[in-house]
């Protein structure tokens, strides 16, 4: 009996979400919605701030130093009279740029290394695996700092370090995952149905590997944001003419005892953004797997015992 009910439930959710079941499910998850909304706000601010900010984010105004939040200065002003809101707003551009470039680079490096690994001779493949293992042993941020101190700090260095670091990780994790999925019975069964190599890869292997990839990608983006903020805070990241949350945090933290309220803004922006990328990655992974997706999980487990 419960089997029929379960199937019934599947039908109702199934019909409604036929087109993009995972998107509809994502919108049903508070964490997914909040994270997605925050990232959307961020992207919109990045675009809008390219054309317009309430004040010039870099313009010092000696007449209005350390003002508390007001209608004119939403987040108040800093020690040289800059509008903190405008600066935080403009710095979202740096954050989005870094996250997107690091994500892209990580994908390119990850997919490239995986392809190389599966197409080249055994000795190339295995020596590459050793190099990858060595690279992974170093925290990405450490590599970024190392590169920055040699090459001088810039966003380029941040993006390169995080992109390559996570690309290597992505290739290692997804290769292990591809190998695992390639050995499953359902792949063998699909081959026994006459599915060719392209169909096996595209319809059966990659969709089952995608969740692992998405999580790694969201981690890469979160890490790149954290790395940019951290390195800019330490003076290795964004140049003085680029607005950056990390740099603002550094500027303001000197006065934390006198004006504790102002440090909150860049700190909050960094925390929320890193959190949002992590939460969104998790939420996407969950909704892309029907086993984690359905509300009737408990009923299913009960059913599966019979």
């Amino acid at each position: 009996m419960s089997g029929v009910e379960t199937v019934e439930e599947a039908r109702t959710t199934g019909r409604r979400t036929r087109r993009a079941p995972w998107l509809a499910e994502l919108l049903r998850r508070p964490a997914g919605v909040a994270a997605g909304a925050w990232i959307l706000v961020l992207v919109v601010s990045a675009v809008v701030s390219s054309f317009w900010t309430p004040h010039d984010p870099f313009e010092a105004d000696p007449a209005s130093m350390w003002q508390t939040p007001s209608g004119a200065h939403l987040f108040g002003t800093d020690g040289i009279g800059r509008d903190i809101f405008s600066y935080v707003f403009a710095a979202s551009r740096t954050t989005v740029l870094v996250a997107v470039s690091a994500g892209l680079l990580a994908t390119v490096v990850g997919v490239g290394l995986s392809a190389l690994g599966s197409l080249t001779a055994r000795w190339v493949r295995e020596s590459m695996a050793v190099v990858i293992d060595i690279l992974i042993a170093f925290p990405t941020i450490l590599i970024a700092m190392l590169l920055s101190s040699i090459l001088g700090g810039s966003l380029f260095v941040v993006v390169t370090a995080v992109g390559i670091g996570y690309g290597v990780n992505i290739s290692r994790v997804s290769r292990a995952e591809i190998r695992r999925v390639g050995r499953t019975d359902y792949v063998l069964a699909a081959r026994a149905s006459g599915v060719g190599p392209a169909g096996i890869l595209g319809r059966h292997i990659l969709p089952n590997v995608a969740p692992v990839f998405v999580v790694q990608l969201s981690l890469a983006m979160a890490t790149s944001i954290l790395a940019e903020a951290g390195l800019s805070y330490l003076g290795y990241g964004a140049s003085a003419s680029t607005a950056s949350w990390g740099r603002l945090l550094n500027d303001l933290q000197v006065y934390i005892a006198i004006h504790p309220g102002s440090v909150v803004w860049p700190g909050l922006a960094i925390t929320l953004t890193v959190l949002a990328f992590n939460l969104l990655g998790d939420a996407i992974r969950e909704v892309s797997d029907p086993r984690l997706r359905t509300a009737s999980n408990r009923a299913d487990r009960r059913r599966n015992h019979s």
Partner: peptide, 16 residues
């Protein structure tokens, strides 16, 4: 049972 809706189900919703 119920073929019309079963085709829309996922494997984990079925018994062995």
């Amino acid at each position: 049972p119920d073929p019309e809706s079963l085709v829309d189900a996922y494997p984990h919703q079925l018994s062995g």
